[in-house]
């Protein structure tokens, strides 16, 4: 029983990381209809930068915050290239973000090399209800939950949050009332960058990061986000947590290293079920 509780809490901690990546994807997709393939790179950049800053002797907190803000800036830059040119379709933007994700490899290797990196998080082992787990997982949860609450408040209570939702709901009407839809798209990219970066700095102490870790993060994030059709942040949170718990339980009870496969098969199943329920509704091709 205490095994189960331990797996559950660990899984929630891992899932929180996925949920953050997923909510970044959702934030960007809702407003711009672009699926951002560079989403995993934000996490890698933030984590790598944080590890450098910590190694240089800067204090915890400051280093992580700098990492997250840099990821937000990276998000803004990706957005500028991906949607900055008028008339760029979401399909084209997707290909651009794919290219920028690979470009990030080049930058990351030049700055940080191609070896795995990590840094210390909350040290030690926590005991919750008889279950033992790395204490850092509790920190991940302790940060992620308030972040999601703050995001919910941002979208529900602030005018800028409502304007973002308005762009998602009806971009033409947003133009009519004078909302700069492109600028809102860039804001969404920056927000997505920050959320991806937060996922990176939170999970790196328990899962070291390499320049090409972005594929795993992206796939897990997408699998979590697709449950809510890439438009519902709350479902993305649930999806991320569920995925994390499922993977940890499967690994814990003997499935050893089939973690990514769980996400992949789940993602395929969800998409195929969604597609057959929709009937093949054609999306605009590129």
């Amino acid at each position: 029983m205490s095994d189960f509780l331990g797996y559950l809490l660990t899984g929630l901690g891992i899932g929180a990381g996925y949920a953050l990546v997923a909510s970044g994807l959702v934030a960007i997709h809702r407003v711009t209809r672009v699926v951002n393939f560079a989403q995993g790179a934000f996490a890698v950049v933030a984590a790598m930068l944080t590890s450098s800053l910590l190694a240089a002797g800067l204090p915890h907190g400051f280093a992580e915050l700098t990492g997250v803000l840099t990821a937000a800036l990276a998000g803004l830059l990706v957005g500028l290239v991906a949607i900055g040119r008028p008339g760029t379709t979401p399909g084209t933007s997707l290909i651009i973000t794919l290219g920028l994700g690979i470009f990030a490899y080049a930058i990351e290797i030049v700055i940080w090399g191609d070896q795995p990196r990590s840094f210390a998080g909350v040290p030690g082992v926590a005991v919750v209800g008889g279950a033992r787990l790395q204490a850092h997982y509790l920190l991940i949860l302790a940060v992620t939950v308030p972040v999601f609450l703050a995001m919910a408040a941002f979208f529900a209570r602030t005018d800028v949050g409502k304007a973002l939702s308005a762009c998602a709901s009806n971009p033409y009407a947003a133009l009519v009332v004078g909302i700069d839809v492109r600028r809102m798209g860039l804001l969404a990219f920056a927000l997505g960058g920050a959320l991806g970066g937060l996922a990176g700095v939170l999970t790196t102490p328990v899962q070291q990061v390499t320049f090409d870790s972005d594929v795993t993060l992206l796939v897990n994030g997408f699998a979590a986000a697709i449950l809510g059709g890439l438009t519902r942040p709350v479902v993305a949170l649930g999806g991320g947590l569920l995925l994390g718990v499922a993977q940890t339980l499967i690994a814990g009870y003997g499935g050893s290293a089939y973690q990514l496969e769980v996400a992949l098969v789940l993602m395929l199943a969800v998409m195929i079920v969604q597609a057959s329920r929709r009937g093949a509704v054609p999306e605009p091709a590129r």
Partner: peptide, 18 residues
């Protein structure tokens, strides 16, 4: 192939990873 656009892109990516 029931999937379109970015769904198919991710599905083919998943296929290769598996």
């Amino acid at each position: 192939l029931r999937l379109r656009g970015h769904h198919l892109a991710f599905a083919t990516l998943a296929m290769q990873l598996i």
